[in-house]
């Protein structure tokens, strides 16, 4: 299972433990520092059984968690970014893309797939943070737009799992306009009365927060996720003092009234099923 291998590569162990245990078999929780086996961690859906810390996971893991028997049909898997601006900063954008593709085995920062969730048809769009920080470029916008169209054609609800630093600067205004594009397409999903659940995971910031991520019929989140428009560093610079504890966490955003609820990842599938039941019955 390639998705499991990828998680292994992402594990965090300190040098001391590495000496004692073969690499990849152990996971050290960044929240409580407790060490558990990678297998147990995966069985817990990458949530620490001790302190509830939700480790960042990618699209494949969410598909495996949600879809019945882990079976799904991915759509538009071949979409890749162009480089119309011929963007160069410290690196060429085109090289950055190629490197990310080689490193992650992914084409871009989002995948879209449909399948059954406890018997309910559902479209799931899920981001991969390790692909240029889950940043939103033309591919993400187009994949979301097409996923919405597919939902309309097949009369399916949409679950969109955000995990993104926001706009992809290397696509400049093209990236900005993906906010408009996705939001505009969501009006059509809304007209069809098809449910849209937005799941904001760690982190969801910038242009993603300021467009589709905040437009769900339900906006939900995982515990402890960072959610905001401006990043914490920028806010800190703006106000010139330290940020209050827990600022921009899912719990904070819930308290301020912008989330419907927070759900533990281990209850996600059951919860989504209940939500789909509600809309259906």
């Amino acid at each position: 299972m390639s998705w499991f291998k990828r998680i292994k590569e992402g594990i965090t162990t300190s040098t001391r433990e590495k000496k004692e245990t073969p690499e990849g078999l152990w996971y050290k929780c960044p929240g409580c520092k407790k060490i558990i086996s990678s297998q147990e961690h995966a069985d817990q859906m990458w949530v620490c059984p001790n302190c509830n810390y939700h480790e960042r996971i990618g699209s494949e893991e969410y598909f495996q968690i949600l879809f019945d028997d882990g079976k799904y049909t991915e759509i538009n898997a071949g979409l890749t970014a162009g480089d119309p601006l011929k963007f160069v900063d410290t690196k060429k954008y085109i090289d950055r893309l190629k490197e990310s593709q080689a490193k992650t085995g992914l084409k871009d920062s989002i995948r879209t797939a449909h399948g059954k969730v406890n018997g309910h048809k559902l479209m799931v769009a899920a981001m991969d943070f390790k692909f240029i920080g889950g940043s939103m470029g033309s591919v993400m916008g187009e994949k979301i737009a097409r996923a919405i169209q597919c939902c309309i054609d097949k009369k399916m609800p949409l679950l969109l799992i955000s995990k993104s630093g926001g706009a992809r600067m290397m696509e400049a205004a093209l990236s900005l306009m993906q906010m408009a594009k996705t939001s505009a397409m969501l009006t059509r999903l809304s007209d069809e009365k098809l449910p849209y659940i937005s799941l904001l995971t760690d982190p969801t910031t910038g242009g993603v927060t300021a467009s589709f991520a905040m437009l769900g019929d339900l906006n939900i989140s995982e515990p402890g996720a960072l959610i905001g428009f401006a990043g914490p560093r920028v806010v800190k610079e703006t106000i010139g003092k330290d940020l209050p504890k827990g600022f921009q966490t899912a719990e904070f955003v819930l308290e301020k009234g912008f989330l419907d609820y927070i759900i533990d990842r281990r209850q996600l599938k059951a919860n989504i099923t209940r939500v789909l039941d509600f809309f259906k019955n």
């Binding site: 939001s183 300021a210 600022f247």
Partner: peptide, 24 residues
């Protein structure tokens, strides 16, 4: 858009998102 503390508390992201949706 103003990147302040209160702006975040009052949902700067949601406010902009809502406008994109409604203007469309």
């Amino acid at each position: 858009a103003y990147p302040g503390l209160e702006a975040e508390e009052r949902g700067q992201g949601e406010a902009i998102a809502r406008n994109l949706f409604e203007m469309a």
